[in-house]
Design a protein around this nucleic acid. Structure first.
Lengths: 335, 335
DNA sequence: AGGGCGCGTCGAAGCGCTTCAACGCCCAGC
DNA sequence: GCTGGGCGTTGAAGCGCTTCGACGCGCCCT
């Protein structure tokens, strides 16, 4: 293993000079810098991360806590994770992967040991058990998701309330009155992963304002249960012409069911999906959708974390504005 | 921050004693150990990872290199990743997340800097650019996937050749003669991500032996292209009664198409999927399938890595035996 | 021409831990 | 009663880096 001292000797300078060349924390003359850089190249030097962390009490690592679950919105999670890893690298950070399984103690362990400088928490629940610890530890952290109480926390999320409102507006604008909301699995609501509720809130509030008659049903994943739920909705309120689907696995099923009933999309029924673009690409119809900007969320999260580590210590809630893309699954209400 | 020295003082012993209590590398009397452990508890001590890595030249971190792509077999990747993280923890390791984007240099960077002790590479291609570097560096590494040349490498993967053979056997056993193989996207074959080819090899070899007439088509993801490919297959060889699908997004489409043509499954056509169990759960039919044991792969990979780090230095190729679960989508050939 | 200033470089201390050689104590053996 | 051998414990060195204060040189200003 090549050490800084060897580089220094090879370049004919002192160790500290090499260190300063590396960190740029002091001015080094162009000539010296070049010498040092050449030596680094020639010897294939890589600074020892541990030594660095020890001396500077900075590890340049961000811990990312992902849910252990692999049954729900996996592609979104994955895309966020990849965005985080990529963005982190551009800021000189590496990413340590924690699973949610260990919970708060994992956060303590990792930061207590100086393994990571900060944490990004995914899949935050309204009343998340990891939050008290986070708050009291004063550890730089960013949540992806929005808990009930955000005081003293930095959060990044899609503005799901606005998302709901946007959907309501779009459908109302097309003349729809009876709208069914196909929600996430009941488990999601039970866990109080806020986003589903927030979408619903937005939908309801704007819906009330615009005179929509909303009906909401959570929708179990898995073929049988999904179909049963959808069938029941269509049966209970046959006059429904607008559908908002926030459930990856129900989108295609709903389209199939409508087709089977001889109802054309968008002529007889309008469907909006709240889903990642990926799902839109896979759908049998060019879906009007509000996309979940996974990549942007990951990037934002890292940028907030980096800002915090740089001392720009503003706690803030970053709500990304939803964008509704009108494609071919929504149209004026049938006459 | 609490240091080992403080723990030592608090417990009335020397620093080295505390260290030995922690590592268990020397015998410590029960009484002393208890004292020390109590002090650790009371002070909330966490050993500093950097200092540890510096002194012991072991970071207790495994780097995991995932593909950057988020368009393909994402759930499998995710499940593997989670299994890796979880298993790693049970062995006292943490996991550092690298994206494939940086390629070989990232491997060098991370291990050169002592940030990680070993690497797990996912999504290995037949002629992977990261392999030469790995081989020459002698760095402990485990691949998930099987490159063309495995000398000097440890690999973990499902035995896809056996998987193909298993499918051929099952269908042949049921009397099928004309079998269509719906493969992954063309891009997968072009990248030479070995598994798709290996499945095909197994299928072909066993198929020849058992007198199957195979036809193979890669299948683009995305609704339109998928449907087009499937339709073409059914048209070209209407006599096909057996289907092997190795493409998450084509399974449900194929089932739909068959249904639409009035062909019942399994009475008129048999379908086997090679896919994670997750997909089976979502399908409209109880699918006969060979499952992709993502969790087992992740676990195996970590265990191999840990064994290597412990000095059990056998390079080996671990091929997990496929299991075909007969459900309700395969049956005897129609008479 | 002399003093001061600033730029670029250096030396040394110290981050928190592991580990090795060494040490003291107690007990068994003669 | 004295010695030898373990066992449990300790002290100190050193891992590779950062960082602070200091230092020397050349230049500008007077």
């Amino acid at each position: 293993m090549v050490t800084l001292a060897e580089v220094a000797k090879h370049a004919g300078v002192s160790a500290s000079t090499v260190s300063y060349v590396l960190s740029g924390k002091r001015k080094i003359s162009a000539g010296t810098r070049e010498h040092v850089e050449r030596s680094i190249q020639e010897l294939g030097y890589h600074p020892h991360a541990g030594a660095r962390a020890l001396a500077s009490s900075r590890s340049n690592v961000i811990a990312l806590m992902m849910p252990l679950r692999t049954d729900m919105y996996v592609p979104v999670m994955m895309e966020i994770a990849v965005a985080i890893a990529t963005t982190a690298r551009t800021h000189g950070y590496d990413v340590l992967l924690l699973t949610g399984e260990e919970g708060a103690p994992a956060v303590r362990r990792v930061t207590g040991s100086g393994l990571a400088d900060a944490v990004i928490l995914m899949d935050v629940e309204l009343d998340d058990g990891r939050l008290p610890l986070l708050r009291e530890s004063g550890l730089p952290a960013v949540l992806i998701g929005l808990p009930a109480e955000t005081a003293g926390l930095t959060c990044v999320d899609l503005d799901f309330t606005a998302t709901g409102a946007l959907c309501a507006e779009h459908l109302a604008g097309l003349g729809h009155r009876d709208v069914a909301v196909i929600g996430e699995a009941p488990a999601v609501y039970q866990r109080h992963t806020g986003f589903a509720e927030r979408t619903l809130d937005g939908l309801r509030e704007k819906g009330r304002e615009l005179g929509l008659r909303l009906m909401h049903r959570p929708c179990e994943t898995g073929y049988g249960p999904t179909m049963a739920t959808l069938a029941r909705i269509l049966e209970e309120r046959p006059g429904t012409t607008g559908f908002v689907v926030q459930n990856e696995s129900a989108v295609e099923r709903l389209l199939g069911l409508l087709r089977q009933q001889g109802r054309a999309v968008p002529e007889d029924a309008s469907v909006i999906a709240v889903c990642p673009d990926q799902v839109v690409l896979q759908a049998s119809v060019r879906l009007t959708s509000v996309s979940i900007p996974a990549e942007a969320m990951g990037r934002q999260a890292v940028e907030r974390v980096v800002a915090k580590l740089a001392g720009h210590d503003e706690d803030e809630v970053v709500l990304l504005a939803p964008e509704l893309t009108v494609r071919a699954s929504t149209g004026p209400v049938p006459v």
